[in-house]
């Protein structure tokens, strides 16, 4: 992996001539987790998809750039709420999908190492349908890591999981993605409070920065300061909605 750049997103988006969000500036610090919260339909996924270079159905005007000047879209790995595992392929083949799609040789040693790190080695021959929701999301995480990209875009990756599995996945992701520039779109104030090095709340009017707890991420689920930050975020989100 090349060293993780800082990413700046600067601009506005229109849908059918009407503004989806006003001009806003979002900075993803190099090697850090930036969390993006906000009401449904406010444009969080749109921002993430614009950074990934994916189709969005909005008209974007502005710029998306990396601190090192190199193009952004080619250096991102993408993970969404829907794990997007190919149902016909084994765990192993799902994790190795990127190399197969690019016609590259598979780095099997790395794949096996990643399987160990997401604790799925004994499941490598299984199909996604034979796995639990948490295991599937771990496969998706391994596939994301297999890409070995410096920028990681996560769109509510853990929101379909039960509370315990979600906390486990947050710890695992924080550990395995450390040192990369991460954008995490989430609905969950607790998640943002646990994982964010920077936390942004998005409204149609723009972004509000919220200072994260001082403890290093991932923070304990019962850390008082983290719980306090979670509460403050919740209050802010509800106030924005009102």
């Amino acid at each position: 992996m090349d060293s993780a750049p800082e990413i700046t997103f600067d601009g506005r988006a229109d849908v059918d001539g009407a503004a989806l969000f006003a001009p806003l500036a979002l900075r993803l610090e190099a090697g850090q987790w930036t969390c993006l919260l906000g009401g449904s339909g406010v444009g969080k996924s749109t921002i993430l998809r614009l950074i990934a270079g994916l189709e969005t159905g909005v008209r974007f005007s502005g710029r998306i750039a990396a601190s090192d000047g190199a193009p952004v879209a080619r250096r991102v790995a993408y993970m969404a709420q829907d794990d997007l595992l190919l149902p016909w392929a084994s765990v192993e083949r799902n994790i190795g999908l990127g190399a197969r799609l690019r016609g590259e040789r598979q780095d099997r040693a790395r794949l096996m190492d990643l399987l160990d790190r997401v604790r799925l080695r004994e499941h490598l021959g299984k199909r996604p349908a034979e796995l639990s929701g948490g295991q599937r999301q771990r496969v998706a995480l391994a596939r994301t890591l297999m890409e070995d990209k410096p920028v990681i875009l996560l769109d509510e990756p853990f929101s379909a999981l039960d509370a315990r599995t979600r906390a486990d996945m947050q710890d695992l992701a924080a550990e395995l993605l450390s040192g990369r520039t991460v954008l995490l779109v989430t609905h969950d104030p607790a998640e943002a409070a646990r994982l964010g090095h920077a936390i942004n709340v998005m409204t149609p009017a723009g972004l509000t920065q919220v200072s994260p707890p001082d403890a290093p991420a991932p923070r304990h689920v019962d850390d008082p300061e983290t719980l306090g930050a979670q509460g403050a975020l919740m209050r802010l989100l509800r106030a924005e909605a009102a």
Partner: peptide, 9 residues
């Protein structure tokens, strides 16, 4: 989308 972020032809 996934394939596109993986630079698949």
């Amino acid at each position: 989308d996934l394939a596109q972020t993986m630079q698949a032809g």
